[in-house]
């Protein structure tokens, strides 16, 4: 169908964008890569928005490393994330996740900040952010703040972002020596949203496990993490399947997704073991 937008404005800089969001009194929508928003507009799931186009704000794009932290600008496109040498070396989980996200033309235009702010529970990047223990940086009329990923994702398509705030970047700890980061998912077809997906990070401090497409938001599987730290894979699978409450839809039932989560954890652990040898 044809989208109906109430208005459009191109932001000249971040401040300008925030001013427009404030001025739009709740009707404003931040338009970045547009790969979810424009689709929703075309399906008339979202109509009458005042669009604040931030896609030209170059200062929000790009990857940099400061000490042990890798900072990824919100407007860095999926394809850039996947190809970036810093990401590939120091945040391999994000690079690996890119291959699972939709298709080339979508990855050319979709942005990592957009994916995080959209907070689709079936999307890869939010779960990656959770598994990595990322900080999400936002800017609003009162200035900037940082939100740990664990506090950022609240519900289906719902985050801690206020309606006049803009997500500007995320920062993640650069992988330490020996750190392993893995993503496993099962989708019906290449590029489809996963029926269930799992990110596993093993650091000196311990394991981190985050799942996607198994609940209203990405889920940090703390029980499974504790069990993995103790070397108990069966216990981790048991914990995992009890700490998720997956949805049922036309693609798969909750029971299937729960089963799949356990399979994915075992597969990820098997890859970890393979990595060790």
């Amino acid at each position: 169908m044809k989208a109906s937008a109430a208005g459009y404005a191109r932001a000249e800089n971040l401040r300008h964008a925030i001013e427009m969001l404030v001025a739009s009194e709740g009707e404003g929508r931040v338009l970045a890569g547009g790969q979810s928003l424009v689709a929703a507009m075309n399906m008339r799931l979202s109509a009458g928005d005042l669009l604040v186009d931030i896609s030209r704000l170059n200062e929000l794009s790009g990857v940099s490393q400061e000490g042990d932290t890798v900072r990824i600008g919100a407007l860095t496109r999926h394809a850039q994330v996947g190809a970036d040498p810093i990401v590939r070396a120091r945040v391999p989980l994000l690079a690996a996740a890119v291959a699972h996200i939709a298709h080339a033309a979508i990855r050319n235009r979709g942005t990592i900040g957009g994916a995080l702010a959209h907070a689709d529970p079936a999307a890869e990047f939010p779960a990656c952010a959770l598994a990595l223990g990322a900080e999400i940086h936002v800017e609003g009329p009162e200035g900037d703040r940082s939100i740990p990923a664990e506090d950022f994702f609240e519900d289906v398509f719902t985050t801690a972002l206020e309606e006049d705030e803009i997500l500007t970047a995320l920062s993640v700890p650069a992988a330490e020596t020996g750190e392993v980061q893995l993503i496993e998912e099962v989708a019906r077809r290449s590029g489809d949203y996963a029926l269930a997906g799992l990110c596993l990070v093993r650091r000196a401090k311990g394991h981190r496990v985050a799942l996607f497409s198994v609940g209203p938001k990405p889920i940090l599987a703390t029980g499974a993490m504790t069990a993995l730290d103790a070397g108990d894979v069966d216990g981790a699978v048991a914990a995992l399947t009890s700490e998720i409450d997956p949805p049922s839809d036309t693609q798969a039932s909750a029971a299937y997704r729960r089963h799949l989560a356990g399979v994915l954890l075992r597969r990820a652990v098997a890859r970890l073991e393979g990595d060790r040898t």
Binding site: A5, R10, Q35, N42
Partner: peptide, 10 residues
């Protein structure tokens, strides 16, 4: 690029 997911205004 998907032509349907990019606004002409952009």
């Amino acid at each position: 690029v998907r032509g349907c997911l990019m606004l002409a205004a952009q």
